[in-house]
Design a protein around this nucleic acid. Sequence first.
DNA 1: ATGCCTCAGCTCCTGAGA
Length: 255
Amino acid sequence: MKLATWNVNSLSVRLPQVLDWLEKNPVDVLALQETKMTDDKFPMAEFAGAGYQAQHFGQKTYNGVALLSRSPATEVLRNIPGFADDLARVITATVDGVRVIGAYFPNGQEPGSDKFEYKLHWLRALREWVRTELAQHPRLVLMGDYNITFDDADVWDPVTLKDTIHCTEEERYALRALIALGLVDAHRLFAQPPKSYSWWDYRGFGFRRNRGLRIDHILLSPDLAKTARSCSIDKDPRKNERPSDHAPVLVELAP
DNA sequence: ATGCCTCAGCTCCTGAGA
């Protein structure tokens, strides 16, 4: 089974690239973030033509998440149950016996800001809910745009970016709290190229200079981690003419 | 450099992203 996550930064703009990518990478599940569209605008027919059914939880202008899958998705949930949120950030479904959570974590903007506090609240709510999901679904994957680096290895310039957004100790603590549930970072189960990042700023030739961050993650439950065969970041779509600022991350699990 | 680029929208500037 192959699963992937990709923050597309507007599905309207990126749809041709997503279809092209799926043709080259026929994964079983693809989680999308930042579709930036309402459900009525979602290109259901185009994905159906590519062999994918879709669950979309969208909104106008910002956010919006989707799960594309070859097999039917059941037990679908939107956002974190019990956590009131106006923003469309989480879509969850069971596909081929795997509980798949696709999430667009809050950005946080700046440490100390209201948005940063919201991010920390959201992270706490997510952890408590994932704890219960994990108890019911031992085969679980939590993947998406986390907007958090694990540590300095995920940061192109950890000195300059120390304690800035995505790199603060509070955010990293919240990320480790997810790991404390037993989840495993699929990326670090395998040897990776040095300076592996999943996002590069559009400005200042960030991609060309590999000035990036690893903020898109795939976390696996212990049962699934045992079956992991590979995990990689696909930088190819970032070389397209109008790329998303994020690259897709993929994981392959043994059947 | 409160800069750099990209996207959406009550669109020719602003807010947000990260």
